[in-house]
């Protein structure tokens, strides 16, 4: 089976500061991987490089064998940790836009998920609550049949009920040919759905293994392991 995502000696520096230091790893299809690390560890930098929003200082990224570009963007569905959509657009308008640009976007699925949340598609983003805005962004991302989903802090700043909803959406969307990369620092909420955990500290990988292996080896939860590894 071919690797879905390959990171090959990725480094990124901003002036004197080294944000990522020789990061190399692979993700196979059908895995849900947690990108875990404290703030400033380089998680978002790595994610932006995968989505070609930042160019690396050295090293390469390959997605299905392609460098980040038009082909990779067709198969990568990215949820940033910010609101990035034009607030004046209606949910309906956004769905039409996504359907226009992405062949693998499924509008029926999007409308189905929206109806379950009682969000009126005719409303503009501006009129929705912040929580609902974030859910709409998640729905748009998850309604694409992508090979790689990259979710940057999908549950931070979200109430527990919404958290459950988001995790449920992720699980029910699971496809054994696709992978999900979730960056978060709220580990205990999410570790039950992770296949693998990748620990990032100060731009370097300190750990990359399956979660159940880690639980067997270290006799503790991923959350507890995280606290141990990243003790202040």
């Amino acid at each position: 089976m071919e690797q879905l995502l390959v990171s090959n000696h990725i480094s990124k520096h901003y002036g004197a500061k080294l944000a990522l230091n020789d990061v190399s790893f692979q993700i196979m299809p059908g895995r849900i991987v947690g990108l875990l690390g404290p703030n400033g560890s380089g998680k978002t930098t790595l994610i932006k490089i995968i989505n070609s929003l930042i160019s690396p200082s050295s090293g390469e990224i390959y997605i299905n064998g392609n460098k980040p570009g038009v082909e990779s963007k067709k198969v990568v569905s990215y949820l940033p940790d910010k609101t990035y959509l034009n607030e004046w657009m209606t949910v309906e308008g956004l769905i039409k836009m996504y359907a226009d640009f992405y062949e693998n976007f499924n509008p029926e699925r999007a409308y189905d998920l929206l109806s379950r949340l009682n969000i009126d598609p005719k409303m503009s983003l501006k009129k929705l609550s912040k929580g609902n805005q974030e859910k709409v962004q998640l729905i748009l991302v998850m309604s694409r049949k992508a090979d790689l989903y990259v979710l940057d802090e999908p549950i931070a700043g979200v109430d527990p009920a919404a958290r459950d909803y988001i995790l449920e959406t992720i699980i029910s969307n699971y496809d054994r040919n696709a992978s999900i990369l979730i960056s978060t620092h709220l580990i205990s909420d999410i570790e039950n759905i992770l296949d693998d955990a990748l620990f990032l500290r100060e731009g370097q990988i300190v750990l990359y293994d399956s979660t159940d292996n880690l639980r067997t080896t270290h006799q503790k939860s991923i959350d507890a392991l995280f606290r141990e590894v990243f003790r202040c």
Partner: peptide, 17 residues
Amino acid sequence: VRTLATEASVNPNTMQK
């Protein structure tokens, strides 16, 4: 497997295993 995984809030891979 998928139904059980969703019910248990775990990864379908884990439930499959």
